[in-house]
């Protein structure tokens, strides 16, 4: 018997039954999307809620009118933190016109890259998290390797609960991407004497540009 079969056999033996009949399995599959209790997030202004939660976790935000404003907002952020004018940018953000002195790349982020700019798929107001979805036009290394990370998020893409995000994903008919990252602020650790320090391995700074 393969290990797979012997583990499944042991599980069934423990549960005191044979493999479930087809009808019982179908019933389990029909459980579908369960409606569990959710924390009440009764804010009428989800954008404000998102900003408050995200900033409470040491993230920063700014509001811009349109995608065209992204380069200027990124340049301002970079100037404020003395970051050189060079970034990896996901092409999911579309064609952006960068100031002349900026060096922009779209590939995977290498060890030397200090700034990443990427498109957030959605924001979760409940916790102030952004959801990043990996893909050719949104490389996952942009989210983790650079020391500073700027995420561009449309205000209309801020949902109330995680569950609203799952519903959107299912409605889109899109397959689940290879990686989905919920990110709530800059990287941190409490591993030295249980005291929080920012910038453990992932970005030290995280800035969300909310469009609209």
């Amino acid at each position: 018997m393969s290990s797979r079969d012997s583990i499944l056999h042991a599980v069934r033996q423990g549960l005191g039954r044979d493999a479930l009949p087809a009808a019982a399995r179908a019933e389990l599959d029909a459980r579908g999307t369960p409606q569990h209790i959710r924390p009440a997030v009764d804010d009428t202004d989800l954008v404000a809620r998102f900003i408050a939660r995200f900033e409470s976790r040491a993230g920063t935000t700014a509001r811009i009118a349109s995608l065209a404003d992204v380069p200027a907002a990124v340049a301002e952020f970079a100037a404020r933190h003395a970051i050189a004018p060079r970034a990896v940018v996901g092409t999911r953000l579309g064609e952006l016109v960068w100031p002349e002195d900026w060096q922009i790349e779209h590939g995977a982020a290498g060890i030397e890259v200090m700034l990443g700019v990427s498109a957030g798929h959605l924001g979760v107001a409940e916790t102030g998290s952004v959801l990043m979805m990996s893909g050719p036009d949104s490389p996952i290394t942009h989210n983790f390797v650079p020391e500073s990370h700027v995420v561009v998020l449309r205000a209309a893409d801020i949902v109330r609960h995680f569950e609203d995000g799952w519903a959107r994903l299912r409605d889109s008919g899109q397959a689940v991407p290879r990686a989905m990252n919920f990110i709530a602020g800059p990287s941190r650790t409490g591993d030295v004497e249980q005291t929080i320090e920012l910038g453990a391995h992932g970005p030290r700074r995280m800035h969300v540009l909310i469009v609209g």
Binding site: A108, G135, T141, A179, P186, G202
Partner: peptide, 19 residues
């Protein structure tokens, strides 16, 4: 929430430049 919650599904997909 913790800072990072990551769902990984399979290896890199066609066209992916990392992962």
């Amino acid at each position: 929430t913790e800072t990072y919650t990551t769902l990984s599904t399979g290896p890199r997909r066609e066209g992916d430049v990392d992962g």
